[in-house]
Structure formats: C-alpha cells, structure tokens
Amino acid sequence: MMRDVHGLSMTMATSVILISFLSPNAADFSESTDDTQRLYEARIALLDGMKKLAKEPSRNQRETCEEQIDVLLNATPSLRVDDYYLAARSAEMLGLDEKAISILERVLEKHTDQKAPSLRCSVEVSANMWIGRLSLDAGRPQDSLDALHRAILAAQLEKLKLEEIIARLYVSEIEGSLLNDNSRAITSVQSILQESSRLQKDLWPDFFQLWAKRQYQEFSDATADIVCPPGGPLETCIFSFTSLNGITLDPSGGELHGLPNSELRSLFLSYLEITARESKNSIDRQTTELAAAEYRFDAQDFAGAEQILTQLFLSEAFLAPAAGVKLAQCLALQGDTARASHILQEMRKRWPNVSVR
C-alpha cells in the first residue's frame, strides 16, 4: 500500500510508533570496547538521522535512515531488546513494515523471555502483538491471527489476564469484521464476557467490557450503538492496549533518546493521520483519530482538530462520545460557545446514559 508522507512515497501500514526509546546512559556503555562504541555511535546516528528527516524530509535522508537501521542491527552480535525495538520502530516510521516485522522476529529469537521495554509483559507477548498489527494493516489477516495467538499463549503462561483478553479482542474483531466469520467471532466474545464476570474490576476495566459487548452486538445483530463514555479511565485504557501492540498516542510524553516530540511534530502527526485513515482495526483507527486531533488541539490548530473530531463525533464509532467532548472544548476555545453548547446537548440526546460534563 503506497502512501505519501512529506512528499516521500512510502509503504506505511502502521500506527504511531515514535515512543520512549531508552536514552543513552553512560553506565550502559561503561566498557570501552569496540563493540559498545559502535553500538553507541549507531544509536546516536539513527536518532539524529530521524530528527533530521523530521525537520528536512527528503528521499536522500530517508535512505540514509534506512542505512542507519542496518548499521545499528550489525553494530554488535549482542544487541539488547531496546536496540531491536528502536530499529523496528524506526523502520516502521519509514514505512518499512516488512523490515520491522523481520526485526521483531529476530528479537523474538534472541530475547523472547525478556521483559519488553516499558511494559510488564515479555517480548514474546508485545512483539507478537506488534507483528499482529503490522501484518493486519499489510492486508494479511491470517498472519496477524497467527501472531496474536502466539501472544495469547504467552500471556496465559505469564498469567497476564488483561493482556490475554486484549489480544483475544483483536482476534475476534479480525474474525468478525475482516473475515466475516461472525459465528466464530461471537463464540470468542461470549467466552471473553463469561470470563470477565469472574475478574476483579481493576483487571477488567469498563472500556474492555464495553468493547467486547459492542463486538457481540455488531456480530450478532449488525447493530453497534454501545459506546464508551469519555473521561480519564478511557485514556488509561487506550494507552494500555495501544502500547501493548507497539502504538503510542501520547504526543507530549514520549521522547526519542531525549529529543522532544515537538522537534518531530510534523512527522509524528503525519503518521497519526495516515494510520487513522488506513488502519484495518476499528479501535486503532479511532484512537489514532483522537490522538491526531489532540495533537492539533495542543498545537492550537483548532480548525484542524475540529475537522477530525466532527467526523468522528457524527459517526457511530465506539469512541464518538470522547470526540464530542473534545469537539465542544475546541469550539469553546475558538469562541463559538453556542455550537459547543449544542454539541453537548446533542450528546445528551444521543447517549442519555453517558455522563457529559
């Protein structure tokens, strides 16, 4: 699938991927060996190259970044998990999805039992979730299902029930929405809902329960009026499942080896909006739409944020209420309090059981 970002023709089948790479620490490279020096220099070169691409996008700089990924991967035989994740995320940003998958397969071979960066699960869970998303967006749902099932098995072994359920919800959505196997999808969701009745509230947030109920509703009778209420818990849940499959939606919190996201704003926003437009997974698509609008909102591009939020709010999307609240805020900040009030009134009519403030 060819996509154009900043005038560069790329294959981009991803969501947001520029997040929380481990900052170089002197302690990490205390041994003055040739290998550690090459690794340090390769990391810095790739990070500087991505920063330069964000500021001055060009085909030549993109090709330079591709070469720098290979230099990092060959810097030493003993790469860490963070090194592989940095290379995979950089490849994904460049639209090199098959290369990103190949890198993730390598880290699975070498570090499958190690903990994934910034997550409580192992590499086996997170890398397979990540591969599942990339494969799905590349139009290979069966490969995606295979990877997700590997993630489910790993999560079960690690006794991580929420991570297991998240992967299973992705599986049921693929079965029902993309493979049109409603019977299998309904059976999958029924099993999840039955198990959820035995879980503690903190292990089974409302967001995931509502997502499962909406899937059941959609696959059983082709309706979809169950929505997720806005609010802080919504954001927490969104970050928990998107981070698990390699997505980051936080425009202010992530840094690339100490480079603020503001220095990568244009590139970051472009990928957000491309993903929102072309993601095969409805939840990924909606969350990246919200994140793109939030990013524009924070940059005081209220007109741009309003356009995205209006389309999402007027839809029957699971996250439409969250878009409505943000749209009202956006209109109010532009001085259009009348329209903002109208949006909140419309929300109360459409979703009388959803709290609107």
Rank of each mutant, 00 (worst) to 15 (best):
M2Q: 12
D4G: 01
D4T: 15
D4N: 10
H6R: 05
L18Q: 05
S20Y: 09
F21I: 13
D28P: 11
F29N: 01
L39P: 00
G49F: 03
M50T: 09
K51M: 11
L53T: 07
K55E: 12
N60M: 08
Q61R: 07
R62H: 06
E63D: 08
C65F: 00
E66A: 08
Q68V: 01
Q68M: 04
D70Y: 03
D70L: 04
L72E: 02
L72K: 01
N74V: 03
T76H: 10
L79F: 04
D83P: 02
Y85N: 05
A87R: 01
S90W: 02
L94T: 01
L96Q: 11
L96T: 02
L96P: 01
S102G: 14
V107R: 07
K110L: 14
Q114W: 10
Q114G: 03
A116Q: 06
S118G: 04
V125Q: 11
A127L: 07
A127V: 11
M129W: 13
W130E: 11
I131G: 09
G132S: 15
L134I: 14
S135Y: 10
L136Y: 08
D137N: 15
A138F: 03
D143P: 02
D143S: 07
A154R: 02
A154K: 05
K159Q: 14
K161F: 09
A167G: 10
A167K: 04
R168I: 07
L169G: 03
E175D: 15
E175V: 04
S177R: 13
L178R: 07
V189L: 06
Q194E: 09
S196F: 06
S197I: 00
S197K: 13
S197P: 00
Q200C: 03
D202W: 02
L203S: 12
F208V: 00
A212N: 06
K213C: 08
E218C: 10
A222P: 01
A224E: 11
A224K: 13
D225V: 13
P229F: 00
P229C: 02
I238L: 13
S240K: 14
N245H: 14
L256G: 03
S262N: 08
S266M: 02
L267V: 03
T275Y: 05
T275N: 12
Q286N: 12
T287Q: 09
T288C: 14
D301R: 09
G304W: 12
G304E: 08
Q307H: 15
F313K: 04
L314F: 12
E316S: 15
A322C: 06
A322E: 08
G324A: 02
G324M: 04
L327G: 01
A328D: 08
C330Q: 05
A332D: 12
L333A: 11
A338E: 12
A340L: 05
S341C: 10
Q345I: 10
E346H: 13
W351Y: 14
P352K: 12
V356Q: 10
